[in-house]
């Protein structure tokens, strides 16, 4: 084992104190140490977006960060999006209703990216949604179901807020 460091961070609201190898990427750390395998590795060079997580609420590619860099910070992964174990987030519901996923491998990055985006832009156009997910590759859906899901989720979130 190479050089290690002790880090403390919050993942999905839970605090972890772990010894990590300094060369471990954040993605590998999340998948192997807390065992949160919902964050996927599709390219490990920062293009496919499958490993996108939320770092202090901002989307980031976890293959392009070292685990040691997130000491003291807050991470949200796909496992932490739903409000409870038996309830999905409106975005997750919208993905299911609009066939926004097929194999589901790009889905974690799509969800985390869109959660940030819909926070920035609660009433987006179709083109804005397409640009928002331009850094997330999907090989199954042709993006149509994902775009529809994002627009549907935006509406659900607006209605929930208005209600």
């Amino acid at each position: 084992m190479g050089e290690t460091r002790k880090i403390s961070l919050s993942v999905n609201g839970k605090t972890y104190e772990e010894e990590v190898e300094v060369r471990f990427t954040l993605a590998d750390f999340l998948r192997q140490q807390p065992g949160l395998t919902g964050t996927h590795l599709g390219c490990e060079h920062g293009v496919c977006g499958a490993c996108t997580i939320l770092l202090n609420g901002r989307s980031a590619r976890s293959c392009l960060m070292l685990a040691v860099q997130v000491d003291g910070q807050e991470i949200t992964t796909i496992e932490g999006i739903a409000p409870s174990e038996d309830e999905m987030h409106p975005l997750q519901e919208a993905f299911r209703d609009n066939h926004g996923l097929q194999c589901g491998f790009c889905t974690p990055g799509m969800l985390t990216t869109l959660i940030e985006f819909l926070g920035d832009n609660p009433d987006p156009t179709e083109q804005e949604v397409r640009e928002a997910i331009s850094g997330n590759l999907c090989r199954c859906t042709g993006y149509q179901g994902i775009v529809a899901a994002a627009l549907d989720a935006a509406q659900r979130l607006r209605e929930a807020k208005g209600a």
Binding site: L55, R58, S59, R61, L64, G135, N136
Partner: peptide, 9 residues
């Protein structure tokens, strides 16, 4: 420039 995830970092 890039995508929202890359601009964030």
């Amino acid at each position: 420039v890039g995508h929202r995830q890359t601009r964030n970092r």
